[in-house]
Amino acid sequence: MALEPFQQSAALSLGVELELQLVNTHDYDLAPYSDEMLRLMANFELPGAVVPEMTSAMIEISTGVCQSSSQVLAELSQIRDALVKCADKLNIAVVGGGTHPFQQWHERRIYDKPRFHELSALYGYLSKQFTIFGQHVHVGCPDADSALLMLHRMSRYIPHFIALSASSPYVQGHDTQFDSARLNSVFAFPMSGRAPYTLSWDEFGKFFAKTTRTGVVKSMKDFYWDIRPKPEYGTIEIRVFDTPLTVERAAALAGFVQSLASWFLHEQPFIPVEDDYMVYTYNRFQACRFGLDAVYVDPVTGLHMPLRERIAMTLRAIGDHARQLGASAGVQLLGEDAELGTNDARWLREKQARERLLAEVTRQGAMRFRGRG
């Protein structure tokens, strides 16, 4: 099977997807209401799309093609407001976060869609354990080779993305001691991890042809990489973000990605090399485990430094690009959070320390998502 051509897109354009939790308002456990939500949401004229996900207590929303993080925020807010209205009619709630704090994975139902049933047959219990919730950010690239260069440059910043978005400390009622436990579930899949190192679309096409010949994959959808090219959109897709608790943070993270991409395109700050990946898994683990308190290992010098210090350096480097793109406010907020060690995982833990009841934490998370928390 040949790799499809890389389509044209506007450089630095954005698209954002958010996987969201549907919970009942009795005990705030997950509720299998995605069909009912989709039916009600069909009555609204909205940007982007609203679609089902692997299990029936999940729903995914996405923006259209956006030019700025402020447009991302406007579209996500419009969809969020419609979701809240529909959820209220069903007496359920919508919540952000990378994991539901206390749901039991064996109780989940696979959504009735052929691809989801195929994945369930292939992956067994992992399919139900995939009731986890992420934010995906697409960024437009000028051409196919530029997309691969962008992908491998972005890979140095995977720990930044993980720590700033981390919102999954709890799994099945327990504090995992990870800020982002969600990514441990993703890593269980055989085609997860990182993309192969190549800066040539022709070489990438050869790799794709080899993998499809083996029958291991049938399309790009079968790669669960942290970042993957999306030739049908002309983008790369960054997939390591936990779903934030608010659409404002989701838009700020998209602005961070766009500002980084602008820095890469206009200043060409470095050329990635395969040796960058020698510390990739270690840095990824550190960010998942410790969040903004992680240690970051520079892939070039081997220097160890606090990740929050590395984030501050990065934000200074991209500051002019963030201002030009209108992303300064969101990027500044992320910088302040990095300095203070504040992310959504910390918010969830602080609420649980006070409330001593994860159902109440989830209720407050639902209020926060609707803009009242």
Results as ranks from 00 to 15, higher is better:
Val273Asp: 09
Met58Ser: 07
Arg284Leu: 13
Tyr224Lys: 04
Leu357Asn: 14
Arg354Gln: 15
Ser120Met: 02
Asp344Tyr: 07
Leu149His: 10
Ala250Tyr: 03
Gln332Cys: 05
Glu60Gln: 11
Glu107Val: 01
Val171His: 14
Phe116Met: 05
Asp81Ile: 09
Asp145Pro: 05
Arg316Thr: 08
Tyr233Lys: 11
Gly326Asn: 10
Asp202Glu: 15
Leu260Ser: 03
Glu237Tyr: 05
His160Ile: 01
Leu325Pro: 06
Asp29Phe: 08
Ser192Asp: 05
Asp298Val: 02
Ala254His: 08
Met1Asp: 06
Ala188Gly: 02
Leu245Asp: 05
Ala82Gly: 10
Arg372Tyr: 04
Thr63Gln: 09
Phe208Met: 13
Ile162Lys: 01
Leu358Lys: 06
Leu22Trp: 02
Glu355Met: 13
Asp276Lys: 03
Phe204Cys: 07
Ala317Cys: 08
His100Phe: 10
Gly193Asp: 04
Val361Asp: 02
Phe44Leu: 03
Leu148Asn: 06
His160Lys: 00
Phe204Tyr: 15
Ala87Asp: 02
Met305Arg: 15
Arg284Asp: 01
Asn91Trp: 01
Leu307Thr: 06
Asn24Cys: 13
Glu53Arg: 07
Asp242Trp: 03
Phe116Val: 11
Ser262Tyr: 08
Pro244Gln: 08
Glu336Lys: 15
Leu148Gln: 06
Asp112Leu: 06
Val297Ile: 15
Ser34Cys: 15
Gln103Asp: 12
Arg249Glu: 13
Glu350Tyr: 01
Tyr224Pro: 00
Gly48His: 08
Ser167Val: 15
Val273Pro: 00
Leu38Pro: 06
Thr235Ser: 14
Thr246Phe: 01
Leu348Ala: 13
Asp320Arg: 13
Met41Asn: 06
Phe6Thr: 08
Glu355Gly: 00
Ser69Ile: 08
Leu340Ala: 15
Ala57Leu: 00
Asn43Asp: 14
Phe285Lys: 01
Ala31Glu: 11
Lys113Ser: 13
Lys210Tyr: 09
Gly96Ala: 12
Glu309His: 11
Ala74His: 14
Phe264Ser: 02
Asp175Phe: 03
Leu340Ser: 13
Gln103Cys: 07
Lys89Val: 15
Lys351Cys: 08
Val137Phe: 14
Trp225Cys: 10
Glu75Ser: 08
Asp27Leu: 06
Gly365Lys: 08
Asp275Lys: 12
Gly98Pro: 10
Ala252Lys: 07
Phe189Tyr: 15
Gln7Asn: 13
